[in-house]
Amino acid sequence: MKRKYSLFLIIFSLFFISIHVVSVEAHSSLINASPGEDAVLDNPTNEIELSFNTKIENGSTLFLTTDTSEKVEPASIQINDTMLLATFSQDLSPGTYTVNWEVLGADGHIIQNNYSFTVKGSEESVQPESKQDKQAASKSTEIETNTSSSEKPTTLIYGIISLFAIAGIALLAWVWFGRNKK
């Protein structure tokens, strides 16, 4: 009877440890962006707003790259709980931009990803040569974006590994306690 109680206690403890491991892996993920992924903006703007599922910390940042691979830095970044607001000194010129973001989640993990959007312009538009003229952002209706494909599987993998570990330990305990039953 003492062996069955020990086996039950081991399995019960491992179960609760695995639940804790899986819940700790809930990293910050992007839930809304303005402008959103693959958005086409008719009117230029000078702001990009990103919303996350958890609180983000100071030190979180973003920058843009143009379709000619030029880097565009925001004039300021404000962080308010789960939101990051990047403001640029001028409106974006017509073209395609990639938003490269990196946030420090409340759990201490750094998560980074990117997405693209386009600012419409006339065919005759010429992009200014100075960096300052190229800085800007666009604001559109909030468009929901998908979570980074590298974020969710991590939690799932840890969960599966934990379940296999529990099953393996339970099997070993059953074999061990079963042999000593003679």
Rank of each mutant, 00 (worst) to 15 (best):
M1P: 02
R3H: 07
Y5E: 08
Y5M: 09
S6L: 15
S6Y: 09
L9H: 01
I10Q: 00
I11D: 04
I17S: 08
I17L: 12
V24D: 11
L30A: 06
S34L: 05
E37D: 08
L41G: 04
D42P: 04
E49G: 01
L50W: 04
T54D: 08
K55Y: 03
K55P: 00
E57G: 00
L62D: 03
L62W: 03
D67E: 13
S69H: 11
E70M: 10
P74R: 05
A75F: 11
I77T: 11
Q78L: 14
D81H: 12
T82D: 12
L84D: 03
L84S: 02
T87R: 14
F88K: 01
F88S: 01
F88P: 04
Q90P: 00
D91N: 15
L92M: 11
L92F: 11
P94L: 06
W101A: 07
L104S: 08
D107G: 03
D107I: 04
D107S: 06
H109E: 14
H109M: 10
I110L: 13
Q112N: 14
T118H: 11
K120D: 14
V126D: 02
V126M: 09
K131E: 15
Q132I: 13
K134I: 10
A137T: 01
T141F: 13
S148H: 05
S149P: 09
E151R: 10
K152C: 00
K152N: 09
I157A: 06
I160N: 08
I160W: 04
L163I: 14
F164S: 08
I166Y: 07
A167N: 05
G168A: 11
I169K: 02
L171G: 12
A173T: 03
W174T: 11
W174D: 04
F177Q: 03
F177R: 01
K182N: 09
K182W: 06
